[in-house]
């Protein structure tokens, strides 16, 4: 008996150790990626990177200024499409939680979250690029905007649901109609959390490449027209990564570092904000 217990305890410890090793194994690539980004990317990062247009093929120098601005333009377009639909739709899911529509929409949002981003690129291509006969910032923004919807919708739903029922009642009892109660009292009460969700969603789509390949397409120059092709940071990273030039490789690392830094900052902020949001309960 005693002996069997020792075996069991030994086995327990081994398995505990195994799960710990699994954790290390899973996190190793992350730390390796971050380490390489920091070491390679940082050395390639300079003022030119943020202020100059890309140089001619194979020539050192130049930067990704237009790609950075392009990404900002694209996520702005995406936000214009995705944020209202996501926030209002998410509010519907929270305020009318047990309707047939909300069950369907919730399920659809979860499914949509898993649709490959390249498929969204195809959709935007068929929807916008084909009829207009050329690539455009608009089509890229639409692809990213659609991808933004499920994230924003589901986080909005969760956050708005945290708003205590007593807050709604207080407003309704004052003779404020439901629509105003929702728009002016409930959503503002949940605003911090909703904004956090939006930021996380935007950070995610800011790094998307596949849906932009044949929509935004990329551009080596400045573009002020959303109906024309536009550069984007992830597109530029991709193009440089598969190029044969060392200097472009270094710039790809620099671009990746910028992108990941943004993702990192947003996620840490979100975590901090989420920690505070809990107190609202």
């Amino acid at each position: 008996m005693q002996r069997r217990y020792l075996v069991r305890r030994w086995k327990n410890r081994v398995m505990a150790g195994v799960t710990f090793l699994c954790t290390l194994a899973v996190l190793t690539p992350l730390f390796l990626i971050l380490a390489f980004l920091a070491s390679t990317g940082l050395s390639a990062l300079n003022w030119d990177f943020f202020t100059k247009l890309p140089g001619a093929a194979g020539e050192p120098g130049g930067g990704m200024a237009n790609a950075i601005v392009g990404t900002l333009v694209l996520i702005t377009l995406a936000g214009v499409i995705g944020i209202p639909i996501g926030v209002l739709g998410g509010t519907f899911l929270s305020e009318y939680p047990n309707t047939r529509l909300s069950h369907t929409a919730r399920f659809a949002a979860d499914v949509m979250n898993g649709i490959p981003s390249i498929v969204m690129g195809l959709f935007a291509y068929v929807l916008i690029v084909l009829p207009m006969h050329h690539f455009s910032a608009l089509s890229g923004g639409v692809a990213l905007g659609i991808m933004l919807i499920p994230t924003v919708m589901r986080t909005t739903e969760e956050i708005v649901r945290l708003v205590p029922q007593s807050v709604r009642e207080a407003s309704l009892a004052l003779g404020i109609p439901i629509w105003k109660t929702t728009l002016r009292v409930v959503i503002p009460t949940a605003a911090a959390g909703i904004v956090t969700g939006i930021m996380v969603g935007l950070a995610r789509i800011a790094g998307e490449t596949a849906p932009l390949l044949f929509t935004a397409f990329g551009n080596r120059f400045w573009n002020r027209d959303i109906l024309q092709p536009i550069a984007a940071l992830p597109l530029q990273i991709f193009a440089y990564a598969i190029s044969p030039f060392d200097d472009w490789h270094r710039q790809a690392w620099a671009g990746a570092l910028v992108l990941v830094t943004i993702v990192l900052i947003v996620n840490i902020t979100a975590r901090y904000a989420a920690g505070r949001q809990v107190k609202l309960r």
């Binding site: 899973v26 990626i33 390489f36 790094g207 490449t209 990746a256």
Partner: peptide, 21 residues
């Protein structure tokens, strides 16, 4: 947090690391 962060790293960045490392 770190596991979530791994999911948040853009695909193209992971690909970049894939090619060169």
């Amino acid at each position: 947090f770190f596991v979530e962060l791994l999911a948040a790293i853009p695909s193209v960045v992971i690909g970049l690391w894939g090619i060169f490392v």
